[in-house]
Write a protein that binds this DNA or RNA. Structure first.
Lengths: 112, 112
DNA sequence: ACTTGATACATTAGAATCTGAGGTATATAT
DNA sequence: ATATATACCTCAGATTCTAATGTATCAAGT
């Protein structure tokens, strides 16, 4: 996800939020959606996405439903109640992170 | 650094910014400073800090100066011109990251 | 004298997450 | 035929971190 290490750890939060907003989505759809929302600036690597989805499902934060789409298969994911609670926590963590970064990286105040 | 994965990748940016603001500092001093600035909410793990300092030095972003303090030794780090350029880039990356997270995680707008 | 806590550096095993590459298969457009 | 898009997947290796452990000095309390 981009050439910055900062995005590390944010993927699962993004997945949870996408599902909370859009009801149910499949993996490939998430990669398109994120690209679209950020004007191609954030691209989810599939090598990160699929293991992350499997892990969230194993943790009971998502449920999966395999649906035929033409001759292909799609795995639609839906957020669970536990996943919704987790999403609230993740968003709070992100807010705290941003606030801490603001404190630590605030530009020097100068008068000149 | 905290119980959130979000901080992963931000340590070197914090180090660079601290040195840019404070001239020169030694490792242990950085851990105290960050704790103080964030009211104990962000604590730098020394197992992460020292390897990070060594790496930044190896990359030419910092220089080190060993200074006796009583009977102990302190390793004072100073940012190099290359480090200053890097800091500018890192801060821009952080701003982009925050903006992207804002787009992706923005709360649903409702009227009710 | 002994212990605790602070100061100040460091390494290391293992965990977590990611990148980049590669793989399988279907469908559509050129 | 070939390329591009769709749709899933795995895996080696890299990076960065946590938690534990280690060394050593020094001050303060008991």
């Amino acid at each position: 996800m981009n050439n910055s290490q900062l995005y590390k750890g944010s993927l699962t939060t993004i997945i949870l939020k996408l599902l909370e907003e859009n009801g149910r989505m499949y993996g490939y759809e998430m990669t398109r959606k994120v690209k679209e929302m950020t004007a191609d600036e954030v691209t989810i690597n599939e090598g990160a996405l699929y293991p992350a989805l499997h892990k969230l499902e194993a943790e009971g934060l998502l449920t999966v439903e395999v649906v035929p789409a033409g001759n292909r298969l799609r795995k639609y994911y839906t957020i669970t109640p536990k996943g919704q609670t987790e999403t609230v926590d993740r968003l709070a963590e992100l807010e705290a992170f941003v606030e801490h970064m603001r404190i630590l990286l605030a530009p020097k105040v100068t008068f000149g």
